[in-house]
């Protein structure tokens, strides 16, 4: 099926009538529509029924189970949750700040590393080797280890002029690790741009740098937008790991509150706050992925 046909089918059924204004559906089509409508109604009913039965059973089982009371008291003490909410939100602002700063730095470093690794220039060979080693190492170490190494290790060096601020060190650790991930995503995007695109650009007289900037990178970035958005969602969650250094982020704030009251509702509140950001972003990512797949399919058919 060609892309134009697909468009016509998925857009609106009315388009067919644009060919002649006098078209009326035939008796056959009308009876088919009736059957289809009935089928749809039946399917909707089945879906509603099955959902009610399954969810209803689960909820009933949960609520009537012997531990339900202590469960709600321990994790879902809403009044207490609302009480500690301001502290957790204040902590979450640290996560947001950290995400903004880290993602900016990661975009820059990741791009530099990716460009270095995909370059062909002999002068850059040592940098290519370094970049490859960097990516191999930091993609292979758990980020928590990097955070501990940087956050506790660097102050232990006692080098004057180097910061002991755990927030800065924690951010640096996140940037170090994510730059390695993002560099690989960007590199794979650059490599998927067909060499003939470079040849065409170079034969127009564009320099190596101009070819990258106007031809290769725009196409590469378009292709890796979905995986980059996935990485952004992970990054937001992983900023919580710096709480191990004593940074008062949402998780640390919840931990403080929880250790005072021996109640775990603050953790649940922190989880909800994270979800409020990550779920919409994940949905947005899914939509972007679907669009880019549709676009690629359309190009394949053209």
């Amino acid at each position: 099926m060609s892309s134009t046909e697909q468009g016509a089918v998925s857009d609106d059924g009315d388009r067919a009538s644009a060919f002649s204004n006098t078209w009326e559906p035939s008796a056959l089509e009308i009876s088919r529509r009736k059957v289809r409508k009935k089928q749809n109604q039946r399917n909707t009913l089945i879906a509603i029924f099955s959902t009610v039965v399954v969810l209803g059973t689960l909820i009933t089982l949960l609520v009537t189970s012997p531990g339900f009371k202590s469960l709600t008291d321990t994790f879902f003490a809403w009044a207490y949750g609302v009480e500690v909410l301001p502290k957790i939100i204040l902590g979450f602002s640290t996560n947001v700040l950290l995400t903004i700063i880290a993602s900016t730095c990661v975009a820059i470093f990741g791009m530099i590393i990716a460009l270095t690794r995909t370059s062909r220039s002999p002068a850059l060979l040592p940098f290519r080797i370094l970049a490859t080693a960097y990516v191999d190492i930091f993609r292979g170490i758990p980020m928590l280890l990097v955070i501990l190494l940087v956050g506790f290790g660097i102050p232990a060096l006692r080098i004057s002029g180097l910061t002991n601020n755990v927030l800065i060190l924690g951010t640096a650790a996140v940037v170090i690790t994510y730059s390695a991930y993002v560099a690989e995503v960007l590199r794979s995007g650059i490599l998927t741009v067909h060499p003939s695109q470079r040849a065409a650009a170079r034969s127009l007289g564009l320099s190596h740098f101009q070819t990258l900037r106007f031809v290769v990178l725009p196409q590469a970035l378009r292709r890796v937008t979905p995986p980059l958005l996935n990485d952004l969602v992970s990054l937001i969650k992983d900023t919580g790991l710096v709480s191990i250094l004593g940074v008062t982020d949402a998780i640390r704030a919840a931990q403080i509150a929880s250790s005072r009251s021996f109640n775990y509702t603050p953790y649940v509140m922190a989880a909800i706050i994270f979800l409020l950001i990550t779920i919409p972003l994940t949905r947005f990512t899914d939509r972007t992925i679907r669009r880019s797949i549709e676009k690629q399919n359309a190009q394949g058919l053209a």
């Binding site: 127009l204 007289g205 564009l206 378009r222």
Partner: peptide
């Protein structure tokens, strides 16, 4: 030199006009 390839090699992320003006603007 101008070169035209068997497989067109137009830049898919640019409009026709942008494809044509890229080199005159950036190179010339």
């Amino acid at each position: 030199l101008g070169m035209v390839f068997q497989a067109f090699n137009l830049f898919p992320h640019m409009t026709v006009r942008k494809n044509i003006t890229l080199a005159p603007i950036q190179v010339h």
